[in-house]
Design a protein around this nucleic acid. Structure first.
Lengths: 203, 203
DNA sequence: GCATAGACTGACTGTACGTTCATTTGACTG
DNA sequence: CAGTCAAATGAACGTACAGTCAGTCTATGC
């Protein structure tokens, strides 16, 4: 690798890291080329020596971030462990990696889906609607617990996870990771969720 | 209610519906006041008679959309059914309601987290990283199936849902719906996921 | 049928921000 | 040390878009 290529790679890395820090701090909406340039301690023009457009820069920053995290998960795997232990470690590793990338992930997960600050009038209203819905689902679960129909589990936690599976099913369709109709996932989610929390999960 | 109030409510509803249609079609980024005005067949200025800022408009449109969906879920509930059946119906109802609001939800779930078109160079690259990761997790699950350690389940589906639970845990913290450290969720997810798919889920 | 209020309009303004490019810097060469 | 050239700079430009407001339209009351 020539000297120029080393410098180029160093600059690119520096700019991408800066972009990710800016995204974490200001959210997707608030990420401007000026801010990235300031954070990377280079002039605005310099960024355009390495990236054609702002979009290209932001996309590269996000994809590179995900790539690094995926690589870290892969590196944590030990195929020689017994299968269940391997899955357990896989989950724990992902948790660890996620939490050390919290700020970055935040912009992908909430920050920009709505560009809402949690501590603001609309943010609180949004959360009131959402929390109300979760409370309702949790109350149905609590009712089932009281009837001994499912095992004792934190109903708020379970309600939230159920919601994640439901929106996840839709997301999976939208990402074209599954082409069967949405309805056919319903039974699969029921099965996964219920067998996970039912008192008598054995057939 | 006076005549003026009726007209006002009608206008507000009309504008909010238009905003949601624009959001669905152009994504959060591409939602401009001009487009909403055109879609609602009113002048730009009219929108500012009912909403102080664009942010207020967008927030109202999103929150109203969520509110309507939450109300629909609530209306579908029948507390007289047995608990497990009630949960089952709850899940199915949410699936139904989600799919009839697909376009709207899309902007909240993916469209704008990254403002990426799925069918584009960066979109494909993004998906390649993500799909690669899912393939890896699925292969671990497949391995466990082959060893008879977990029950037969679509490994791609399970891998995706596991990922949803993991990012869900983070999202739950970020939304301030749980304050305990992220790590303490790890065991709960392991439990929910494994007991859901393990061959021998009974203690 | 005229007057008045206020709902509605859309051309206009200000600005934030992505992108460009003429100029400067500084590392390397002979 | 002078000459060369790519890398870097940041002022300037163009555009898209949120927000404004002077003017028009329409309904209601007299």
């Amino acid at each position: 690798m020539t000297k120029e290529e080393v410098i180029k790679e160093y600059r690119v890395r520096e700019i991408l890291d800066a972009a990710r820090r800016v995204m974490a701090r200001y959210g997707m909406q608030g990420t401007t080329v000026d801010r990235v340039a300031e954070e990377a301690k280079v002039a605005k023009g310099t960024i355009y020596l390495y990236f054609d457009t702002k979009d290209e820069l932001v996309n590269a920053a996000v994809i590179e971030g995900l790539r690094e995290m995926a690589a870290e998960v892969l590196a944590s795997d030990d195929p020689s462990k017994p299968p269940l232990e391997r899955i357990r470690r896989l989950i724990l590793a992902q948790f660890r990696i996620q939490s050390s990338n919290q700020d970055f992930l935040k912009t992908l997960i909430i920050g920009n889906s709505l560009d809402i600050e949690l501590e603001s009038q609309p943010g609180r209203e949004f959360m009131r609607v959402y929390a109300g819905h979760l409370d309702f689902v949790a109350s149905v679960l609590q009712d089932a617990i009281d009837h001994g129909a499912i095992r004792r589990i934190d109903p708020q936690f379970a309600a939230f996870m159920l919601g994640e599976m439901l929106t996840g099913s839709l997301r999976r369709r939208l990402l074209k990771l599954a082409s069967s109709p949405l309805e056919s996932d319903a039974e699969a989610v029921v099965e996964l969720f219920l067998k996970g929390i039912a008192t008598i999960p054995c057939d």
